[in-house]
Structures are given as structure tokens and as C-alpha cells.
Design a protein around this nucleic acid. Structure first.
Lengths: 246, 246
DNA sequence: GGGGAGAGATGCCGC
DNA sequence: GCGGCATTTCTCCCC
């Protein structure tokens, strides 16, 4: 395909059809950072919302990209096709210099579906609210997403001894960051209420050794809790996979 | 294209060529979480390293995906083409049920280039190491990436009054997390060295109000520092963009 | 729009 | 492999 035809095709499709190209190109980016990618073969996608994605033939992340509502200027001569992309909102500029267009295709795609997802940290906190015994027999939950100046508490409550309880949940591994987060909330609650009997609990399936050490240094507790999806997996181990489908 | 031909094309290209499809499909995923995506038009990509990407016609993130080294099983009948993807390492499964294959293309792409990038947090810390006056006239840097049990310190040093200095850098906005991080390091240094005269400095272009409050609560300092790329931008404001293109 | 935090985060580096 | 952490993070929610 010659450069002039490619230019026309892209301009006609922009904002109406999703465009996919295989092309040999180099890429310049300037915005939140600055980057340069030397010549190589890539997949270039311009979506219907004017999102730009440039993918190398390996790895899952795009090597360069621009967000939705980007403006495009296409220029061409005998040797090159240049796609200049500018996003005013994010103050970003990107230029693709295409040295060889192997292939270009565009099509209007219709898709208004949203992903339905289960097994998130939110589900985990909800599970604890609904079944506080997962933390302990004494735990009484009060609220979810309690707002403090120093952030939001996942689950907030008290126990039979009159202690306030701050719970931070993690769906996978509790790490140093999670302990820091918990500490911030516990101290904020102590300061805000002017009391000292506030306990911190980190609820997650696993914890790193350093995080556990730090947790104990500050007098907090680790409570092993599995996210809801694992429980479901337990229940249907004998059943076949994907049975959750709707 | 009939399902049987598509199946053969995909099987032939797998691991050798990058495959791009426009297809009407639904998607099931089970692994770290579980998800379902009802029928719609999407771009499906299988890269040469067996990475799978499914993109809707809007937004920059893939709606579903599988990592490199995924194994594929393609099955078909008159009505559907099913792509079953399994990743043993990450214990993830995904299934794409294609109801309409609009288009399929594959090609071997050659690309061994790596992105050259400037203006990262690492560059910012390096800049402070090389030009400590950006922090203050008294600051003397000692090391980058100093390791402690509670994490790595971006820039570590001392001042003319004999205080140790811990600097945490952020390339954009300093937030509560950044202050927590700084605090962790300062306390760790105090504990490890058994001393009290350790100062914490958060070096970044901007800081959130709550973070600034927390910073002052703990006796730390905010030092406004711009990442190197902004400085370069200043220098070449009159020049045309993309001149950095090395 | 800013602030705060999760994400099927991913990717990088170090041990 | 795990740990710790930045990311052109992105996305969502709430004020």
C-alpha cells in the first residue's frame, strides 16, 4: 500500500472505525516523560475514541500510547508516513514515523458491554462486614470506607473489650505499604477521637516477612483471610471450570 | 472466513507470527479474579510470545488478557470458534467464544528495540545526587537506593549540622503514601543507627494538602523540585518540539 | 477536577 | 522465585 492511500484510509476512518496496522516505524513521545523508540515492526491501533496504542510483538503492555480524544495529523512523502498525535488535555505529543506499512485495516466495532468481575478487595471487605467472625468472635463491624483525613478505612468496628478496630484488607499479599497504610489510619483514629485503645488488623491471605515484622513492631495483628473467590473455588473444585458464567 | 480456516490459520501462526482479529465474541476469565464479558465486537491479538490481548473499541486498557507463554486450544463447530487459553505459571484460564470472525491477519514482526525514556523518578534522584544544591546548600548526598529492612531510600545523605537526611522523590504529586514511605525510612534509620537527628525531605514538584499536613505533623520538609525533563522543556521552549530525538 | 486507593495491576531490579 | 517499588501507571469512587 502506498503512503498516500494509507493516509486517506486513516483520515477517513478516524473517530468512526477502529484502525489496525502492521508497520515498521519509529516513535517519539513527549509529555509526562520523554521517550524514543528506534525502528522496528509493531502493531499500531487507533481506536474509535482516538486512543492510540503501539505494541511490540512481545509483552502485554503497549510500548507507547496516547489517551482518548487525541488529535491526529497525517503527513506523507515518498519515503515516510508520519502520524502526529497531540492530546491537549494531558499536554502530550507523540509522533510515529512509518517507514514501511505492511498492512492496514479498519472497521466499525460495536460494543457497549461492561466487564463483570468478582473477587476484588471490595468483595473481601464486604465479606468481612457480612461475616465478622472471619476476624474474631468479638469483632463487631461498624462501617465500610470510613473517611479520615489520612485516607479511607476498609472496615471499621469495635470488640467486646471496648477497643476500636481498624481493618485493612488486601486481596493478595500484605506488604510494607499495607502496614504503613494501616498505621496511618490507626494513628488518625487515635488522634481524632483522643483515645488510645485502637487496634489495627491486616486481613489478607499472605504477608511478607518484613511486613509481619513491622506489623508486630507497631503492635498490630495479622489475620489470614481468603478473598471470596477462593472460597467459591473450594466449593466447586469437583465441578468444571467456568461454570460461574453468569 | 469460515471457522475451520480461522482455526488452521491461528494454529499455524501461534508462537511464530503476531495474530490480529476483528471479532464478535464473549469472554470468560478465571484466575486472580473471575470475570465475564458479554458479546460485542473486539480486537483480539495473540503476540509471538503467546501474550493475548482483547481490546474493546474504546479505552486504552485491554478488557481481558493473558500473559506470555500461555497455551492455546482452538476448537470449532459450525456456529462458534473457541479459543481456550491457559497459563500454568499464573494459574489462569480464559476462554473467548467467537460468534463472528470479521477478519484475521497474521505476520511475523521483527523488533528488538528497547524504549529510551527520560524524566523518571530515577532521573530525578540522579539529578539530586549530581546537584545537591537543589535540596539545600548544606546537603551532602551519600548514596542512592540505600537498602533498609523497611524499604529503599531514594537519596541518603547528611548536612553541615551533622543531621542525617532521608530524601524521598516523586516525579509528580507527593501524596499520603509518599509521606508514609518517607516516615518508614526515617524511623528505620533512627532505629538502625540508634540516633535521633534524622531529617526527612519529600522532594517533588507538587504536594497534596493532606500530605503536606501529615508531613509537618511528623516534622518533615517539602522541597519543591522539578523532574529533569521539565528543566529541559524550559530551555527549549523557543525551539521546536521533538528536538531531543537523539 | 483533585484526592485517595485498588488493580486479574505490569514491569524492573535486586537478592 | 519473592520483595519492594515506580509507572507516560489506569481506573474508580467520592468530595
Amino acid at each position: 500500500m502506498d503512503n498516500e492511500s494509507a493516509k486517506v484510509k486513516i483520515e477517513d476512518a478516524l473517530g468512526k472505525e477502529t484502525i489496525v496496522m502492521f508497520a515498521r516505524c519509529e516513535v517519539y513521545y513527549s509529555g509526562r516523560a520523554e521517550s524514543f523508540l528506534a525502528e522496528g515492526d509493531r502493531i499500531i491501533i487507533i481506536k474509535q475514541d482516538r486512543t492510540l496504542l503501539i505494541h511490540q510483538p512481545k509483552n502485554s503492555m503497549p510500548i507507547n500510547y496516547m489517551k482518548e480524544e487525541t488529535e491526529y495529523t497525517i503527513t506523507t512523502d515518498n519515503k515516510e508516513l508520519r502520524i502526529k498525535a497531540r492530546n491537549k488535555k494531558y499536554k502530550e505529543d507523540l509522533e510515529v514515523i512509518i517507514r514501511k506499512m505492511y498492512f492496514l485495516k479498519s472497521k466499525n466495532l460495536e460494543d457497549n458491554q461492561r466487564l463483570i468481575i468478582k473477587g476484588t478487595e471490595r468483595d473481601m471487605a464486604d465479606m468481612i462486614m457480612n461475616n465478622p467472625k472471619l476476624i474474631s468472635k468479638e469483632f463487631k463491624p461498624l462501617s465500610r470506607e470510613e473517611h479520615t483525613k489520612y485516607g479511607f478505612i476498609d472496615v471499621f468496628g469495635y470488640d467486646s473489650k471496648g477497643n476500636l478496630i481498624v481493618i485493612e484488607t488486601k486481596r493478595y499479599v500484605g506488604d510494607l505499604k499495607a502496614v504503613s497504610q494501616l498505621r496511618r489510619y490507626v494513628e488518625r483514629i487515635k488522634a481524632a477521637k483522643g483515645i488510645k485503645n485502637v487496634k489495627g488488623i491486616l486481613a489478607c491471605p499472605r504477608i511478607t516477612p518484613n511486613a509481619e515484622k513491622m506489623l508486630h513492631d507497631f503492635g498490630f495483628e495479622y489475620k489470614r483471610v481468603l478473598p471470596p473467590k477462593y472460597l467459591e473455588n473450594e466449593r466447586r473444585k469437583q465441578k468444571k471450570i467456568f461454570e460461574f458464567k453468569k
